[in-house]
Amino acid sequence: MQKYFFILISLFFFTQDLLAQGKVKVYDDYEAFKDLLQTESDSTYVINFWATWCKPCVAELPYFEDLHDHFQHEKVKVILVSLDFKRKIETKLKPFIKKNSLKSEVVVMADPKMNDWIGQVDDDWSGTIPATLVFNKAYYSFTEGEFDSADQLKDLVKQFLN
């Protein structure tokens, strides 16, 4: 009896945990995260590093959201990699996603070993955000800093579609 009780309790906490995470996947480890930065498919990926506390990042999020409509007939996938702190996921990040009705997939990169993984994303990245990686299976580009306009980002993505 005690055993079942124990299983029930752990099941309860497990489900709570899943619910709490919602749709935002959290990566604690770069080893798991780095699969997002590679592809063998025909899609083009736009990976934007941002955080709710980063003003210029938030200002350019609409550029990334625009890509969904603009490239709706193309294979373009946008992933917004949030660098928000784990304890702010529920209080800051999720309300932000809801309030702005973000269409892009949002994941959280929470590996604290920044000195180890920043250079692996791109050698040239000093670690400032926003930063954006665009790639397909053959090409990639890395941008540190914000884009001047939505069109500048679109033009960059377009280069990958030919």
Binding site: D124, S141, G145, E146
Partner: peptide
Amino acid sequence: KGRGAVMKK
């Protein structure tokens, strides 16, 4: 804005 951007693929 766009400072240090690597825009070429």
